[in-house]
Amino acid sequence: MSRILDVNEINVFYGAIHAIKDISFYVDEGEIVTLIGANGAGKSTTLNTISGLLRSKTGDIKFLDSSIAKTSPNKIVSQGLVMVPEGRRIFLGLTVEENLEMGAYTRPKSEIRSSMEQVYELFPRLKERRTQIGGTLSGGEQQMLAMGRALMAKPKLMMLDEPSMGLAPLLVDLIFEIIADLHKAGSTILLVEQNAQAALSIADRAYVLETGKIVKTGRGSDLISDPDIKKAYLGA
């Protein structure tokens, strides 16, 4: 398997706050890798740094063998690294269809229609609401739209920041099912979650983040039965 993302010794600061401390990890093609950790552990900061919205003071981030540590966020997207941000951040004033078009911003016009049909197949609810503006969607529908929008870019690596946040249990299951399906269809996914149980059960590998440091790593199936993890994150 070839390496798709290689994060090497990054350090990220918010002013004087040292949020990410010497983090290194990698994702191989076809994997689901998850980063789990409590509130404020630095999960979103890590993803935002990979997408170029934040910068690391040290180290390097390689995507498909070329460094993206200094690449602008929009160019990173055109290389195929796409993020669904925390809190979804769909465009509330744009219609569902326009949101999806924005997701396909870097792609040739001729391919947009067929990608959109694929997204609608995955999320039939979005098709029903395609002329509605984003602000009128429910939380769950907004999450579907955020994921559909990212898929419109045909990502080589998709990063998801807490896709289950604030959703009813039934919808959480649906979202995780879809992530597992995407994985089966060959997508590479970097998943950030607080719902450790669900994340570990679909992940190939996992990293545990605590106050800006990686404290544990292993296969998803191993960590789920790890006593420390059970105690700290699985409420057992």
Partner: peptide, 14 residues
């Protein structure tokens, strides 16, 4: 319109 609403999210669209 996307940039007006959310600069960060717009960048994430490319």
């Amino acid at each position: 319109r996307a940039v007006s609403e959310d600069m960060g999210a717009a960048q994430l669209m490319g």
